[in-house]
Write a protein that binds this DNA or RNA. Structure first.
Lengths: 96, 96
DNA sequence: ATAAAGTAGTTTATAATATAAACCAAATAT
DNA sequence: ATATTTGGTTTATATTATAAACTACTTTAT
């Protein structure tokens, strides 16, 4: 009847992050914070979870002298997102 | 950019309950438990929250000698569900 | 008639999650 | 020099979800 909703994606902030990363090749921490409106602390924690799940990659480097964290979605991430959307359909119908 | 996801509806079980109630005039506790696969305890708690939010009505009566709890979605509930679905679109795109 | 098992739930304790506040290190501005 | 800003992380707290334990009653078996 109802498909399971991947709990890693069924989170407002993590879903927003994935949504942003789907539409760009990569995005840095600050951009993600701006786009999602999240606090830095919350974003840091949620990015970590997405990385541990293998849904995104996180690269740390420097832009000039300033630290810079760059994120990108992985193939697994894309697949998980698509599955999540498909699962949602079982709750929502085609009305979305 | 991203619309807020009503936290009362952004819960797997509560969303499933609302989804069931949208498609029927009313449903009793046992039917909801069967359709959602939830434990009775969890269902009891979540129904309470939906009722307190005004999204469903809960009527307690008897079928013969056995207690019977009947639930139905309210107009507010329908509206909230539709808004939730609309908000989801901002994360999901038209891909759903 | 009584005991055992089942039904329909509620309450409560615990685990998981989300979130913000507090913190840190380095860079830049005054 | 020191104050402020930037780019984060860590950690403490509040919220949420969930199952386990319980209540109250009914049905069935003995």
């Amino acid at each position: 009847m109802f498909k399971e909703l991947n709990p890693l994606l069924h989170s407002e902030l993590r879903l927003a992050v994935m949504s942003v990363l789907l539409s760009v090749e990569s995005a840095d921490f600050v951009y993600l914070r701006e786009q999602t409106g999240a606090t830095a602390g919350n974003l840091s924690v949620q990015l970590d979870k997405l990385q541990k799940a293998g849904y995104i990659t996180i690269e740390k480097g420097f832009k000039g002298k300033m630290p810079r964290t760059t994120c990108a979605i992985t193939q697994d991430g894309v697949a998980a997102f698509e599955e999540y959307v498909a699962a949602l359909r079982s709750y929502i119908g085609k009305g979305i």
